[in-house]
Design a protein around this nucleic acid. Structure first.
Lengths: 155, 155
DNA sequence: CCAACACTCTTGATACGTCAACTATTCCAG
DNA sequence: CTGGAATAGTTGACGTATCAAGAGTGTTGG
């Protein structure tokens, strides 16, 4: 039983700041996205992943892997988005167990309408407040910390 | 209607990296905390705030403000933690509308048992993988971005 | 060939977060 | 001092996340 190693001042500022930064930024961006486009951030991430995919569709397991979500969470989310007409499920012809989530034209329209405003928010609240060096530092920090987590490479 | 300003490569790496970093780090730390101490991260944050407060108790509004939670979320969370014996509600004598959340000895024991292991995880997964300059950069980035958000100063 | 196992996805129960509505109390202008 | 607005906190309903279990299909070793 050794004495616990508490965090020093910089470490505390970094860690608590990181948590608070994420909390505040996410809340603000979600608020704006819901107000301006009627989408949650979860909706948005699903739509982005599908819109970037070959044929605007992905197998469920691939989508779960990209988002790093559980299959169960994804299945529920896809059901809700399907009900709203943003995407649809399609059977996989080569593996009868499998299913695709496919972007509908309404889903494509939704992400195309939402993206510019959302990215504008990301700039306004985050990127425009940082120097180019800080932006690079943020990228490098993320990559260094994520390195030991396999499959955690962002999107 | 101007052409949307997409993110450049560094900006994309920073933003997506940040989101993924938080997602992965939080999931891993929550997993470890639940396994080792039977606490969620929400429980942990409440316990830390109370343990750092005068008299190990806080008015509900003060606790909500420190955590940047809604009153409603806090009230539900406090109810659950009260049921588990980690804290108790106390009436406020000077304002009959008010209530305190007060740490119990079980709550104090829980946070004292959980903190060293949790901070060890924060070090292992995050801080030990960064240079001192990167730790400082992370603190400065958080503070710069949070500056326009009043009351967002971490804890 | 087929039994056992692995994989893909869904489902239902439960826990948590959010929202709007509510009670009770305090504050304050007139 | 009083009636209306503001504040403190709780509650119940609803949407979403997680967990364990299950149905259906594919794969593989004997």
């Amino acid at each position: 039983m050794s004495e616990p190693r508490w965090l020093n001042e910089d470490e505390t500022r970094a860690w608590r700041g990181f948590l608070r930064l994420h909390q505040v930024l996410r809340a603000e961006l979600e608020r704006e996205l819901t107000r301006d486009a009627g989408l949650s951030l979860a909706d948005y991430e699903v739509l982005v992943a599908l819109s970037e995919a070959e044929g605007r569709r992905l197998r469920m397991w691939a989508l779960a892997s990209i988002l790093q979500w559980s299959r169960s969470r994804l299945s529920h989310q896809v059901s809700r988005m399907q009900d709203r007409g943003l995407l649809r499920r399609e059977d996989c012809l080569t593996d009868a167990r499998g299913a695709f989530a496919t972007l509908t034209s309404a889903g494509l329209a939704a992400i195309e309408a939402a993206a510019p405003g959302h990215l504008e928010g990301v700039r306004r609240h985050l990127l425009d407040r940082l120097s180019p060096d800080q932006v690079r530092a943020m990228a490098e920090i993320s990559e260094a910390v994520l390195e030991p987590f396999p499959d955690a490479a962002p999107s």
